[in-house]
Design a protein around this nucleic acid. Structure first.
Lengths: 223, 223
DNA sequence: ACCTTACTCGAACATTGATCGAGTCTCCGG
DNA sequence: CCGGAGACTCGATCAATGTTCGAGTAAGGT
């Protein structure tokens, strides 16, 4: 009775249902699921391991640090955004389509916003940045104009999605009503803001599209 | 010898140099300093308390949670951005000036980017948002156009500053050279990107200003 | 039969945010 | 001068976290 725990073969994991062997991909996929379901602060190595049916320290064989998991999960999300094939000949339509895909992916996974403090160098991010540069170059931009346009567009999507996600998933204390009251009580300090109200519901979508239009108009004027 | 530790009066804090009494403002100010000097992950309640010369648990009298400290620190940083008085009559100049102040404040405190996952409702943020809305309203915008323009501008600054800060303060592994090599090695996958190179040095400033110009051009065209 | 390589995991450690209850200081009314 | 109330401070403590270490195990080749 030295090896093999009490219960023998019958109770041991059983090789068949040991599911798939652990791998980077499975870890990342499960991390994304966990983040979606429970949020960023609930992602711990132990919880992640438990969902994968392994010990927490096992993860460190496939990944050197928790930040690795986050980096990989972030890039995985960007991979969800479909990239137009670029053969349409309409650069503006292509760019617009990808911006919407990009934003949608981030809104599906609201925790992405907080993670953006780290530099984006994953393959999926690079692929999309490359597409953006290429589309604008095809449109006729070059040099500093191209750089500014490409980064301006990226930053606009990122900022928009992040802020919208933050507002949508804010904590209980700040309900829409509480916010409205807060603003109404300070109507003299924030007259325009109180009159205008904060964006709600579909106003976010409209604002994003409209703002993207402004940016693209300004870019197109340079051509 | 019941009260008063060994050493008597002479070694006791001494009332005079007990500095100022602890207060919310002092805590926040010290938190900003600590964040600037050591970064976000080094901000702990214990370290913060030590710098203030108090016990860590004392902080919880003035602040209910660590997140409070972060929220307050974040709003404090936004307070650094000067707001034009709005009497210039040139809305575009006013808006541009404030955008640059806003960005500069965030770049002075690079940790702000990561904190932006939470909704911005502090007085300083609201004041600046109000100014933005007011300036654009004065320019002649209204309704959905106003909302889209105001939020578009905010999101653009936030995204830009956050991304630039992330790239500037990236970890040791990703030096400029390593990034360049990484890109060069995949020249076939990212042809445009590899040819263009990633922004460096003053290119960030130029790109920001240029992109802001595009956005404002697009907005102005709506008038 | 053995060695190597790939992989798994339990115990352990230092550090963190936060709570609790007991202490101390300051001031004000009697 | 007393005393008590309120404002504030803090040490001990707890559960949870990221990560390391070293010992294990399984499979496959020779």
């Amino acid at each position: 009775m030295v090896k093999g725990e009490a219960g023998g073969v019958w109770l041991r994991p059983g090789r068949a249902e040991r599911s798939q062997p652990l791998s980077r991909e499975r870890i990342v996929a499960e991390a994304v699921a966990l983040l979606d379901e429970e949020g960023l602060e609930r992602l711990t190595m132990r919880r992640l391991a438990e969902r994968l049916g392994t010990g927490s320290t096992t993860l460190y064989w496939h990944v050197t640090t928790k930040d690795d998991v986050l980096d990989l999960a972030l890039d995985a999300v960007f991979g969800e955004a479909r990239v137009p094939d670029g053969s349409s000949g309409d650069w503006r339509a292509d760019v617009t389509a990808m911006m919407h895909e990009w934003r949608a992916a981030m809104l599906r996974h609201p925790w992405t916003g907080v993670l953006l403090g780290r530099p984006l160098m994953g393959p999926n991010v690079l692929e999309r940045t490359e597409f953006l540069h290429a589309a604008l170059a095809r449109a006729g931009l070059g040099g500093p104009d191209l750089t500014a346009a490409a980064y301006g567009l990226s930053h606009y999507v990122i900022g928009s999605a992040m802020m919208q996600a933050a507002w949508r998933d804010r904590d209980e204390a700040a309900t829409d009503q509480a916010v409205a009251e807060h603003l109404a009580a300070r109507r003299d300090q924030y007259p325009t803001l109180a009159g205008q109200g904060l964006p709600a519901g579909s106003a976010w979508d409209d604002s994003f599209t409209r703002g993207l239009g402004y940016l693209l108009d300004g870019i197109a004027a340079r051509l």
